[in-house]
Design a protein around this nucleic acid. Sequence first.
DNA 1: GTTTCTGCAAAATATTTGCATACGC
DNA 2: GCGTATGCAAATATTTTGCAGAAAC
Lengths: 152, 152
Amino acid sequence: MSNKHNRLEELVARLRERGCRLTPQRMAVLKILTAGNCHPSVQEIYCQVRDEFPMMSLATVYSTLALLKEMGEVQELSWDGCRRYDAASSSPHPHLICLQCGEIVDLESDLLGNVADEIARRTGYQIVSHRFEFFAICPRCQEAACAASVGG
Amino acid sequence: MSNKHNRLEELVARLRERGCRLTPQRMAVLKILTAGNCHPSVQEIYCQVRDEFPMMSLATVYSTLALLKEMGEVQELSWDGCRRYDAASSSPHPHLICLQCGEIVDLESDLLGNVADEIARRTGYQIVSHRFEFFAICPRCQEAACAASVGG
DNA sequence: GTTTCTGCAAAATATTTGCATACGC
DNA sequence: GCGTATGCAAATATTTTGCAGAAAC
């Protein structure tokens, strides 16, 4: 919890450094992005922010996300037609995505070991970042599917 | 090269098994997807197919891709606003994507080792597939950047 | 006071859908 | 000949843009 709070403060500090203004709308988006283990879509952010700021515009959500993305402070996850955002930390880490319910779990980044270095060495490419996603069925959805097949 | 040809035949066989019709339009899309080491966008496929079939509709490209995706025969790569398709093989493998020129290199899937198994064991998630992408600068673009900085 | 950010609305883009027709099997 | 796939066009969804006014610093 204090972790999350720190992340929020970190983001605020980064924006200040950059000379960006900390408008209430921006703060609201930051709060949502750093609250709990969430990986919201644009619409989810928009809806939540509107609870607090009914006048809030979608364009502002997009522009805030674009800013954070450009700063490297959020990871954009996209698969199929979905785009979700993760501001958990500035360093990329693997994700486990449930194809059924859409739940997303963050995994530790040390899973990869030195794969990136090895690839850089072998290919000559200069690795900037990476994205590593597992598409899966979460335990709850597995149970649900199992119960359904037994039941019917 | 014969590899690519085999992949085309494999896709044709899969479609036949499934009772799908092998229309000229579909064949054209398959040929493009299995030609060389390409990772085309919908538009690229559309443009190339139209060289051969000027009447070809975009909707047909979309529907063919949707079919192949559903069959698990193409991987969809999406990052930022881009979506590209890879039909290199039915098993997922890592990609190395140049952020500058958009070139995509396929990597061997054994880079991962048994990470997927380990995650499945630790989390209880049932892994269906994965996507593993490195965003990088390719050697050519590195040189170009270097030359530019020396030159100017 | 200056400059950036916001809200609005329209525009641009990307993708999906419905339906009559064409054509692979 | 049957039934699926196609082409077209309209519908839908998503994201971007321009601009006047608001407000953070």
